[in-house]
């Protein structure tokens, strides 16, 4: 069945609509032996995924997976529900920062200690879908859908967040920006699951922010978005910065020149203009049902400026 559901909830990015599935592809009967499993450990989940010969899908919040299944874009033979794995439900404060389990919902994250340290990340995650969706959706699910328009990802990338991946082999940790390789594609191998996300510990005088543009006030996919994370020195000068953009390229972009434009400044107007210009220059979107090239390119700069101001203020800058 063909419809736009693949792109629902930020699953993929319309400019790269390469999914020209045959509208009535032959898959007579579909999967006849579909199974639902809810293992209680990560190890068991990995084993299930490794053993499955057909297609498997990981169910965290399900707010993307069920939409894809309804649209007929995916017909898994095995659904592995990870919500009954205790480790995946936890938010831990560690020596190096925070660890957020893969099955932590938006609401749980919003109520957690992470909010104070990483307000931009939590706000981004809490923008996904509706209040109803917030009761279910997860940052890891949002990331693994590999949509360039995913709300939490630019904020995570700006934050320098890492994904902890478990699988049949050794546990590995990679930067969030390395998870998605293309719309709807990730660098995960068969049997691998993202178990959690690591957010670094906050130094003093640090702040982050995320803003997206949507035509309505709620319930939309980002047409363009920006995440900014800054650390200031004692004088209020930006000494570290990371700027990420969403929905302007096949994957979320970490824009080094944009960060460079504001490092060493107190975010004066000139720095802001340079930031906006660097962001716009990094964009390579195309026209689609949600926005135009022109619009995305321009508004990427506008949002980056606005997000930078909020992040700067949160870091204590004046």
């Amino acid at each position: 069945m063909d419809d736009n559901r693949l792109f629902a909830k930020g699953l993929a990015f319309p400019p790269f609509e390469k999914s020209k599935r045959e509208p009535h592809a032959s898959n007579p009967g579909g999967s006849r032996f579909m199974r639902y499993e809810a293992p209680s450990s990560t190890k068991a989940a990995v084993t299930l995924l490794m053993k499955e010969k057909g297609k498997s899908a990981i169910l965290a919040g399900g707010t993307d997976l069920l939409v894809r299944m309804k649209g007929g874009f995916i017909e898994p033979d095995l659904i592995v529900d990870i919500k009954r794995i205790p480790a995946m439900r936890e938010i831990k404060k560690t020596a190096s920062g925070f660890q957020v389990g893969a099955a932590v919902s938006g609401n749980e994250l919003g109520r957690s200690v992470v909010k104070k340290a990483w307000p931009g990340v939590v706000e981004a995650a809490n923008l996904i879908g509706s209040k109803q969706v917030q009761g279910r959706c997860t940052m890891v699910g949002n990331m693994c859908n590999a949509s360039p328009a995913a709300d939490s990802v630019p904020a995570l990338v700006a934050a320098g967040a890492q994904a902890v991946i478990v699988g049949p082999k050794k546990k590995r940790t990679i930067p969030v920006e390395k998870v998605s390789t293309a719309p709807g594609r990730t660098s995960l191998a068969k049997g691998e699951i993202v178990e959690s996300l690591l957010l670094p510990k906050r130094p003093p005088r640090s702040g982050d922010a995320y803003l997206r543009f949507i035509p309505r006030s709620e319930m939309d996919i980002a047409v363009v978005s920006a995440g900014v994370n800054v650390v200031l020195d004692a004088k209020g000068v930006i000494k570290e910065a990371r700027v990420a953009l969403g929905a302007v390229a096949p994957t979320v972009l970490l824009v080094a020149p944009a960060a460079k434009a504001i490092i060493g400044t107190k975010l004066d107007d000139e720095a802001l203009d340079k930031l906006a210009a660097a962001c716009s220059a990094a964009c390579s979107p195309i026209d689609d049902k949600r926005g135009t090239i022109e619009f995305r390119t321009k508004v990427a700069g506008v949002l980056a400026k606005r997000a930078a101001k909020i992040a700067y203020q949160r870091a204590g800058g004046k």
Binding site: A8, E218, M219, D220, K289
Partner: peptide, 14 residues
């Protein structure tokens, strides 16, 4: 291209 309430944007309460 937008046969759904996600991208056919009717006004929401807010």
């Amino acid at each position: 291209q937008n046969a759904g309430f996600l991208d056919y944007r009717i006004p929401v309460c807010s």
